[in-house]
Design a protein around this nucleic acid. Structure first.
Lengths: 345, 345
DNA sequence: GTTAGCACTCATCGCGTTTGAGTGCTAATC
DNA sequence: GATTAGCACTCAAACGCGATGAGTGCTAAC
């Protein structure tokens, strides 16, 4: 029995216990519950070493010890044993994907609800499309009223985008239809990011009637360009209030307020490089308000270039094993659902 | 100076003070701050009467008094002096409606944010369409992939509904277009609520190719029927945590959890009969979880039958004057914006 | 290297005391 | 008869304080 190995095991025991109880853990607890061969004094020595190494903090002299962020990092990187979901949990996930979904928005919300109710953390689900990878399949203008039309863009991969156009004057439905055909033919195969420019170029050379329409379309585009977040849903915010770390209402408020700000949620979900699954701990979340939180995200790139990102946010004292297995299982189910749905492309 | 009038004024002073401070108010406070002509003993007698009449409660013998729900009711119905918004506030509202909106969903959220940031309460914004009042103007099927199509329904009033159809097999875009034309002609002028029946009847008499499509459309419809809530946004949930009534985390959690449940929010917003503006106090909100809350809602029926409902939710100790003036001002601005937008129908 | 023993620390809890804002009642005053 | 001064009484909240106990670090013995 290696001595290094023992330190390692003790650290793991401390983290496990702290994650479970949220109470600083003392040497006697470890000696009784985890390492019965060793006396509390021995554990004490080891803990003293671990503190020196930066893995433990002590809130004050006579409390127990608390894992540092460095400890959580080690825990996540090396100590995590895969923790399979129970049958009930797997069934629960499957039920969520059971009924055919009809509204696209609704799905993110349903997944966020599922994630949060399974983990008791707050969940966020985001779909993004890198605009410049999307290629137009065809477009159509649908008359909505005399001066307004709905512009529908369908990409090669089957994603649908739409926006309401103000045509600036009366346009007959039939005319809209023929313009649709012409533009569709002209623009097919073009990247969405190139559309505004192309439309402007086109609008120069055409008769005044069409000019009007094309102009309106070109003007519309930039506003969509600001952000490529297609859908965002957050669920289970109130879960956070169950954790003792948020029994202080001010802390809770600060965090909840982040979770109500779309841009901040997006940025929390975004920072995960090219990893499929990422765990960010405390300051690694990159936001002052979440320096005591951890965020687990999973990103799945669909064949059409869209990216689905699932995220769980909770205190750094997070059940990482559970969070990771739930999020990856849900992510997988989501992917197969979408693949199934897109199998006809 | 009428004696009844005096009781009335004292009650009003108590409510005003309690709304401001959240602290039980005592006789001396009133005598010093509001009725300097009267001694605290006199106020005490009056307060005793008011308690007997059911307008005041005392948390315990030696605390001050707290307004009862009955008192708030009287306050809202009779004592509220209209409280005009400041110039800054009016400007703030106007700014919210300034930039042309492009995405429909976004608007509700923006209004909810504005309402909540102006009042410091939680705001909800809902748009509903009574299905059976909506009349189809035309419909169109847009090909999305080989087996899937986007169904777009446009109502006479210019509202747009859409859903994704699984066609159950390969259908060519051209075919979709011609089916669109036929169906559009056949179904134009029909109420949306009658569509599923009509579609089923049609699907009987047509060739197999079309049958498939129409069938898919008919099956799609019921799922939209479940609810006629078109858009729902909630903003400023975290505001609630600033109020001393929610310094108890459990109470806060219970309420926040209601505000995360779509159906509950909808039902909280819905119960306001045919009133344009309604104030519900405590148990009048009709939900156990909100028995210590008040809800102010404003509903505006648009010319197309859609109804916009704005709501503010906060503790019963709410600044009703402020809430009412903000909500009605925002409601009015919203209405003129939409009227302007719809002036071309 | 391990552990028993011991002195020391310090947050938390229970408890009696004080404080002060409040009430209700009564008797005097206007 | 309404108003008010005065007074006894109540009770939550604040305060002080010793006891408790979970924890540590250190030392000496095994």
């Amino acid at each position: 029995m290696d001595i290094i190995d023992r330190k390692y095991r003790i650290l793991q025991a401390i983290i496990d216990d702290y994650i479970l109880t949220a109470l600083p853990v003392g040497s006697r607890t470890i000696s009784r519950k985890y390492e019965q061969k060793l006396s509390s004094a021995t554990i004490r020595n080891e803990m003293s070493d671990l503190e020196e190494l930066g893995y433990l903090d002590s809130p004050h002299t006579s409390a127990g010890r608390v894992p540092s962020n460095k400890a959580y990092r080690l825990y996540v990187d090396q100590m995590l044993r895969p923790m399979p979901l129970s049958v009930e949990e797997t069934e629960f996930i499957n039920r969520c994907f059971d009924r055919r979904m009809h509204q696209v928005d609704d799905l993110s919300m349903r997944i966020a609800k599922a994630l949060s109710s399974m983990t008791h953390y707050t969940a966020a689900v985001m779909t993004t499309t890198p605009r410049n990878e999307q290629v137009l399949s065809h477009l159509q203008l649908v008359s909505v009223s005399d001066r307004r039309a709905l512009l529908i863009l369908v990409t090669r991969s089957g994603a649908v985008k739409q926006s309401l156009l103000d045509l600036g004057g009366r346009v007959a439905p039939d005319e809209l239809y023929s313009v649709s055909r012409i533009l569709s033919a002209q623009l097919e195969g073009m990247r969405l990011s190139e559309l505004p420019g192309a439309l402007l170029r086109l609008s120069g050379g055409c008769e005044t009637g069409i000019h009007q329409i094309v102009r309106a379309m070109a003007e519309q585009q930039p506003s969509q360009n600001q952000s490529d977040v297609v859908a965002l849903a957050v669920g289970g915010r109130s879960n956070l209030l169950s954790f003792p770390e948020y029994s202080d209402v001010d802390k809770a408020k600060a965090l909840l307020s982040v979770l109500e700000t779309r841009e901040k949620v997006v940025s929390l979900l975004s920072h995960n490089g090219e990893m499929e699954i990422s765990v960010r701990i405390g300051p690694e979340t990159g936001m002052e308000e979440t320096k005591d939180c951890s965020i687990v995200t999973a990103s799945y790139r669909l064949s059409d270039g869209r990216v689905n990102t699932l995220g769980l946010i909770g205190p750094t004292r997070m059940q990482y094993g559970k969070a990771l297995s739930v999020i990856s299982q849900v992510g997988r189910s989501l992917n197969t659902l979408i693949d199934q749905q897109g199998r006809d492309e």
